[in-house]
Design a protein around this nucleic acid. Sequence first.
DNA 1: AACTAAACTGGAAACGATTCCAGTATTGCG
DNA 2: CGCAATACTGGAATCGTTTCCAGTTTAGTT
Lengths: 344, 344
Amino acid sequence: MTRTKQTAKTGIVAIAKVAGVAPSTVSRFFNNGQVSAKTRAKIEKAVEKTGYRPDARAASLRRGSTNRIGVILPDAGNPAYSNAMRVFHDQLREHGYSMVLGCTYGSVEEEHKLLQFMQQDHVDGIILYTCEGPQDDLSHQTLKQLFDQKTPVVYVGKQNPLLPMDNLSVDNRLGITKAVRYLKRIGKRHITFLSGDTCNWAYQQRVDSFKRAMKAAKLKCPSQAILAQGTSSVETGGALLPKLMEQMPQTEAVVCSNDLMAIGAMYAAIQMGLKVPENLAVIGFDDIQMATLVRPQLTTLRQPITEIAQQTCQFLLNRLTGMSDEKTPQSLLIEPELVVRESA
Amino acid sequence: MTRTKQTAKTGIVAIAKVAGVAPSTVSRFFNNGQVSAKTRAKIEKAVEKTGYRPDARAASLRRGSTNRIGVILPDAGNPAYSNAMRVFHDQLREHGYSMVLGCTYGSVEEEHKLLQFMQQDHVDGIILYTCEGPQDDLSHQTLKQLFDQKTPVVYVGKQNPLLPMDNLSVDNRLGITKAVRYLKRIGKRHITFLSGDTCNWAYQQRVDSFKRAMKAAKLKCPSQAILAQGTSSVETGGALLPKLMEQMPQTEAVVCSNDLMAIGAMYAAIQMGLKVPENLAVIGFDDIQMATLVRPQLTTLRQPITEIAQQTCQFLLNRLTGMSDEKTPQSLLIEPELVVRESA
DNA sequence: AACTAAACTGGAAACGATTCCAGTATTGCG
DNA sequence: CGCAATACTGGAATCGTTTCCAGTTTAGTT
């Protein structure tokens, strides 16, 4: 019994049949191609009747583009990132893209896996808040492939030393330096530093910058003055501060690698009976909304999260629409600004 | 000049050629099928050499499943949702899924568009924090299609009256009632309500519940006692409170439709010189982390965000793995709990 | 050594769209 | 009215996989 050609039960050819036209015509119908009013009506009726919707996968396979953008962040639970994400979502959607999200939690392995995954998924572009340091190159191969196949990637957090990619980053060194200088100016001498795991390059950089800034300010910076572990969260900040005070009891000021930790640390200090900022000054990094909502309000290094996100998106969109020069990567270095509130 | 069959430049057949095997074998290689050590080695070498990675789109087209899950939320900027999202991301990823995100900002049109989009994109499942009320049915058609084609959707926020879908929701009525009762018990009589736009059904429900609860408590509830507009954010809360106090100067307590608004309102009140909770008690809804970080700490109706998210995910995963009964939808109603802190 | 079961492999037909190419209907214009 | 230009349409090839089917080795048993 030879199998007779099965009449298509689904898909564009099926609906083409019920409309009495060719599949190619239906395709044109859905892609604003030229199709006469009469045929248009026939197709509309058929669509109405069958509830047909084109399959985006098939289209994307043939057409090449997926209208999907990958966004890779350290942590979608951190307001600093979730707000950026919100900006991405809105702008991308406005331009017809959907967004697939990945969180690395500071793991370069995870970062690489996500990147690979997105490559295989053929996203049209990627926004990558990288946590790789300059020494790592786990992702390089994949990044290179992406680059070769002309999938735009915009790199947030640092420049890529090996590939000419669009990038934005904040000047962590400058930020931390501003904080240390300010604290010295208001008379603090014993300054310490709290950070999350330094597997994330941005945090690593902040730690390093702190050491340098202390040296430059001619202040002592023994190794116990720096605690770097855990998740860069309020909880971690709260857990670390007592430890820090124990091993460095003379501490007069603590700067933290982000606002979440700073807030945790600040409340832990208050809990211990310390007065902020009199006994202990606290400085954060990011300037998330919460910084203005805690009491005392948090003094912090502001990075304009929304603007950065918008700019990042713009870089990507420029590539996607071919608006920006093939050769030269777009680049931007943002200077964090010390905003003095009540905690320091 | 008839075109001779072009030798494939890309894809599985290309690499099959360089490895000297059939495409089907390469496919098996990548899908843990049986392939002998010898062939395996040949393919590995070829992969190494060419940097080949299978195209997920083509695979998904043929295979049927995309390993992609759609998540639709009102607002990824609200910690209540971004924390849930984080849970989704982690759990889904653990099971090999990636996550595509959409935000509705309370718009049922947007909700529907996203749903449609995800259907066309053939996600394997959807988590939907719906904002549609019982009267709306814009999305019904699409939901029905999804249902018919057996794409699992779990509905968060209410039960779907028309389709037997898995669902979780919090008992908004009960929550608001608890708040009103509590306020009455501690001697507040003039109670008002602040909410964001009621296009989002959850907020709408909270407003309604407030009216009923007031009536049940035999308290006056004129229409000016309720203000419902804007974005359910700290900013809106801050902007609305002065208005509210102007039109209802005798207000002794205000309950808000979420914590963000409550925090905004609380600080605005303090700004106006009111003492919280003495002059004005404030109660929020959600119990996000920020509630414990503001001063005074926020009294609020707690919904266990993380647990809900986990459960939601579990419902979906059950479907995806066929673990749960075809016929009967999984359902869960969560009782919010009043956690009394300092603001009321 | 013979025979059965299992492991392995290749070929070809899908999956569901887009797009080129060529052919036909329609319109515009002098 | 005739002719060129344009609008519209259908057919077939293609995108890069997976999967069924059948055929060929290899291994396992007595």
